[in-house]
Design a binder for these strands. Structure first.
Lengths: 336, 336
DNA sequence: CTGTTAGCGCTTTCAT
DNA sequence: ATGAAAGCGCTAACAG
């Protein structure tokens, strides 16, 4: 039924070792022999069995990547970066969605490890003690991308989320805004949640603006929660003149909530966020945002992983990529 | 270094066959023995090697899914459906992005096959002769999801794209529109491209409206191409009163192009599309669209694949899921 | 209910 | 430059 390396060997009149050599591009094969083997392969339609190969060589040339939410375009972009570099180094990647659920993350990590991946990329999401435990039992390198561990022990590639938020709030501040509200992510989420809230807090403190509890709402990163949070702000006696949202989607929800109430962005209320996803220019007015280099985060983390897998020396285990504020139309100067 | 089934056997004082049995939940093990084995596993931190298991059993309990474009939220939704059902039947899935490039699709299919997946799900994109050839060499079942082959030979799950487009255009027609333009996908794409264009054409013909070449533009499914196409229509002496876009994203681009010119949707120009992605309600006015049941397409195709893998009898190899028109705010009645 | 024993298809020394 | 042979870690008859 299935044609094996042994069949090819017989067909070509050589040993299976020789076939193995040509399949693996081992130079120690006479060109003429190589040709014979290739012909036999062609004739028989031989396709190497990666499972057998993996067992024998103890390498699978595949890296597992766990993605918290496949329908999140940010992560999709990271995956792109991972892929491109993986291809470049001849690794296959197997993507596993974890549905933003911790138990599934752990399960998926274990499945990947059982499948004997040569390395693991863990994307986004909080890294708990349980995660660290799972990573430790892996005897392959792990790198976190677009997230970090508290302990700062595991290799990772990310931006400085707090700084990004801080910068975003500062563009609002520099335009004269003082009544600034924030639509945060959940505070349990260290990078997209807590760190960004903390950046907001720090910027406000430094500007000498007292904290207003009614000007902070936590959403779930989604559009609808942006709408909801904004409506909450709008229902107050005096609404904020500017809003900082932890994600583009929530910011767009905020913009629409504002417009639905008959107010204008940025004339009445300014909006800024962190992300700069493709959607930022798919809204009117176009959204100003601090850009996270998602593709690069993916690419750099995969590159780091290749080095780790090859046991090469790496200088820095924790890399922070720069972010950048992208000004579009959703932020205006405060009048008065 | 790595602990094997043999180590566990010795630790538990049983044979490796017994360990294998408990790991695989074979009922023929005395509870007490089972317990001993579990303890040994725990003590040693044993993790089954899926590669060895795959080689020995000739089954990997994983299915490969090739996704044309990971950053497309439609496909992400399909993937969700696939995943949920896969989990239900205890299959792992390995997702491979093909970047919308045919050569990469073929390459990825072969990689997946080398990895000995038990089945293959091919998502979206055109199915060429070359694809069919690659599928034929696979001796595992293949099902196409969200696409079909010309020959109608390969199992598949999809909607009727032509009918969906036809229905969309008919809501425009029923509101009195006659000057209807279309922003199409590329005509080489059988499902999202050609079929939808053909549905448009048929609806117009049946309404007795002669075709106007200047009222059809082909885009690349993206927002920007929707903007561009719409601007083209707007630059004409007499612009259309309604636009049918082959995808939500292009429709949203069209809406913004219209608004940027100072016109209103739907008062001046109506817009409708096919997709009904999450973005349809993330725009003002909210977009009317024909909904494709993406999640279901994924779920049903995975279910079909499980049947095929288990060699169960399946009644229908080609399944067409129903679509549905979702009316929101972007379509209005023509005055006059 | 449990153990023995062949492989699964390939890589990899070690000879030659 | 090539071949022989010993596994890789596990499953699956087959015995008992």
């Amino acid at each position: 039924m299935t044609v094996t390396i042994y069949d090819v060997a017989r067909e070509a009149g050589v040993s299976m070792a020789t076939v193995s050599r040509v399949v693996n591009n081992n130079p120690n094969v006479k060109p003429q022999t190589r040709k014979k083997v290739y012909e036999a392969i062609e004739r028989l339609g031989y396709r190497p069995n990666a499972v057998a190969r993996g067992l024998a060589s103890k390498k699978t040339t595949t890296v597992g990547v766990v993605i918290p939410d496949i329908s999140n375009s940010n992560f999709a972009e990271v995956a792109r970066g991972i892929e491109d570099i993986a291809n470049m180094y001849h690794y296959n990647i197997i993507l596993c969605n974890a549905d933003k659920r911790k138990d599934k993350e752990i399960r998926v990590i274990n499945t990947l490890l059982e499948k004997q991946v040569d390395g693991l990329l863990f994307m986004g999401g909080a890294v708990t003690e349980e995660h660290v435990q799972a990573f430790k039992t892996a005897n392959v390198p792990v790198v976190l991308c677009a997230t970090t561990d508290e302990e700062n022990k595991i290799p990772s590639v990310d931006i400085n989320h707090e700084e990004a938020a801080y910068d975003a709030v500062n563009v609002l501040l520099s335009q004269g805004h003082k009544d600034i509200a924030m639509i945060s992510g959940t505070l349990q989420d260290p990078s997209n949640g807590y760190a960004r809230y903390y950046g907001f807090k720090r910027a406000m403190e430094e500007a000498g603006i007292p904290e207003r509890e009614e000007f902070v709402r936590v959403g779930n990163y989604r559009y609808e929660s942006g709408v909801e949070a904004m409506n909450y702000f709008l229902d107050q006696d005096k609404h904020p003149t500017a809003v900082f949202a932890a994600t583009d989607e929530m910011a767009i929800g905020a913009i629409h909530a504002i417009q639905d109430k008959g107010l204008r962005v940025p004339e009445d209320i300014s909006v800024i966020s962190v992300d700069n996803s493709r959607m930022a220019s798919m809204v009117r007015p176009q959204l100003s945002a601090v850009a996270q280099p998602m593709y690069d985060i993916g690419a750099v983390s995969m590159r780091l992983l290749t080095k780790l897998m090859k046991k090469e020396q790496v200088e820095e285990i924790k890399v922070i990529l720069p972010h950048e504020v992208v000004k579009r139309q959703s932020v205006g100067t405060i009048q008065g």
